[in-house]
Design a binder for these strands. Structure first.
Lengths: 148, 148
DNA sequence: GGTTTATTATTGATACGGCAACTATTGCTA
DNA sequence: TAGCAATAGTTGCCGTATCAATAATAAACC
């Protein structure tokens, strides 16, 4: 009765997203953007392709998010020195600030999210989530001709 | 370094979604639709409001998904006898079949997803996911004036 | 009974995300 | 070096999701 892991994951993720939604508007970010500026804040400047690969989203999606972030003054996008077809994406001061604000929200989220977990439980749960991701990710390479 | 639970959940969920994507087209469903027909298959006919509440999505979204599912011949939508403003949503034969196909895909997904988990580990992981959902869900009621 | 309030669903505006097609640049090879 | 393949990014089109406003019906209240 709707106890599939697919559904459990969906519900957990969806609750999280709904929970964070108000913070988005508060900071002035769109739905998919926080992960980009978080990545930039932690890994430094990079190209759009790197973002698309890392988050496994379409390059077109990255392109539009970059557009929007640029309009909002969170990032800069300049042609790379080494290759004119590449764009170097970097945070502005405002972007750095937004990333830090977002990080704070995520920490607050986590406090609520993990109520009732002891330290060991958190560790284990994190490991489980990583394993699930890796199981699917590794399979992906193996699966020729699309899926099953 | 990007080890936040928010990100872990995102990655797991996103990998799952990418994994299932090819099955969607195969069955002829849109991205948000499987959960609706799964619900209908397991709980029987219902009103749109019930779906919106259960999945915590906007009634407008349900309205449009219903539209699309109806066009695809997966469901029927008739005015309820007891109240003319309510619609009674029910599966067609084709819808039942699609729900069953989707369920099979989800089982296959689970086999891959849970590689390396023993029976106890699965149980525990499922419990963790449920707890996370409930933690967020229960908070929601408490939080007046939108979040933080 | 007639006015107000709440419920249920739809529509319009806007934004996100994927796929496919396209442009521009770079790298490779003959 | 000319021509072809690969890479990086953008744009068009479509489906999905939210919020706000609206329409239609039902329930509550005086």
């Amino acid at each position: 009765m709707e106890e599939s892991f697919h559904m459990l994951l969906y519900r957990a993720f969806h609750a999280q997203r709904n929970f964070l939604r108000p913070s988005l508007e508060e900071i002035g970010l769109g739905a998919g953007q926080p992960k980009l500026i978080t990545y930039l804040a932690e890994h430094g400047p990079c190209h759009q392709q790197e973002l698309a690969n890392y988050f496994e989203v379409d390059p077109a999606t990255v392109s539009r998010m970059i557009d929007s972030l640029k309009k909002g003054g969170f990032i800069t996008q300049v042609a790379d020195e080494s290759s004119r077809r590449r764009n170097r994406i970097d945070l502005t001061e405002r972007g750095r600030e937004a990333a830090s604000q977002w990080k704070a929200r995520c920490r607050q989220l986590e406090e609520i999210l993990l109520q009732g977990f002891d330290a060991e439980g958190r560790q284990r749960f994190a490991g489980d989530l990583r394993r699930v991701y890796e199981n699917l990710h590794n399979w992906k390479g193996r699966a020729e001709h699309g899926g099953f």
